[in-house]
Design a protein around this nucleic acid. Structure first.
Length: 270
DNA sequence: AAGAGACCCTGGATGC
DNA sequence: TGCATCCAGGGTCTCT
């Protein structure tokens, strides 16, 4: 479900609700949601902890705890977090509950069961291989040129590779490639210097705008208070198969690249 | 090493 | 109506 702008938006709303609250206990409703450590240890280690810092890295949410361990969360496709009154009824797909000391509960809900939480000494145990943040200065044309050199995989697939750059998913990969007018099937190593520079700027512009609009709501992404993002109104090609390209009017095409649905303008993206 | 594909899950939409 | 198939914003694993 969520990509960088959605994860950031969720985290911004969640942070004030959980910072400095004591987690007096944890209830695991579906054990595989805890990736590590083993469930019994996870529950024991979470007991009595406080979240003292909240960060995002790629699509991961990072919570620094008062014992210097880190709780990491990844929502994958359908994960959601809510902070509710403890008396609020459970929902069918609730997987994990943190009972807070203010009478509320921080709940992790996930229909498709892909989302995971990790409790680790160091975040690098989980996110050590992530590429740079796309909005940071580390993600520039020189860096991307180096990573794309001699690569034969489609540029679309490489944009989705979190080891190259962290936080881009299917929506923003398609939108960025359209903005840069680059065909999604182009081998990564075939992009010119100029195209790479365009692509870097396109990624940054698309993500910055999506952040400003609090993400994209297609089906079930919601901010923790239930409100929706607005970037779906700004999508140029994503899930607009057959509709006219906003720039030239040619019908948007849908193909499958690396197993992922891919949308582009066949006339302008070369 | 890099790339392609299977796989993990559930449920809504679509087709016959 | 019932059943089959496809589809979904993610990541990991295996095989070649």
């Amino acid at each position: 479900m969520p990509e960088l702008p959605e994860v950031q938006t969720i985290l911004d709303a969640l942070a004030p609700l959980i910072l400095d609250r004591e987690i007096h206990s944890a209830t695991v409703l579906w054990p595989p949601v805890v990736d590590r450590p083993e469930q019994t240890l996870f529950i024991a280690w979470m007991q009595g902890r406080r979240v003292v810092d909240v960060r995002r890295r790629g699509k991961y949410m990072l919570f620094r705890l008062d014992d210097a361990r880190w709780l990491l969360m990844h929502l994958r496709m359908t994960g959601k977090v809510r902070v509710t009154d403890a008396a609020a009824p459970l929902r069918p797909h609730d997987r994990l509950i943190f009972h807070l000391n203010d009478g509320r509960e921080w709940r992790f809900e996930d229909q498709r069961k892909f989302g995971r939480v990790y409790l680790v000494e160091s975040p690098d145990e989980v996110i050590g291989k992530l590429g740079p943040e796309p909005l940071s200065d580390a993600f520039d044309a020189d860096y991307l040129t180096h990573k794309l050199a001699r690569r034969t995989a489609p540029i679309k697939s490489l944009l989705l590779d979190q080891r190259i750059v962290a936080g881009i998913g299917n929506i923003y990969a398609d939108e960025s490639l359209f903005r840069a007018r680059i065909h999604p099937l182009r081998p990564g190593g075939s992009l010119t210097q100029e195209e790479i520079a365009m692509l870097v700027e396109a990624v940054k512009a698309v993500l910055a705008q999506a952040l400003a609009e609090m993400g994209t709501t297609l089906q079930d992404y919601r901010r923790p208070d239930g409100s929706v993002g607005a970037f779906q109104n700004s999508l140029q090609v994503f899930r607009r198969t057959g509709e006219p390209c906003p720039s030239c009017g040619a019908p948007i095409r849908r193909i499958v690249v690396g197993g992922r649905s891919t949308h582009f303008c066949p006339r302008e993206q070369r």
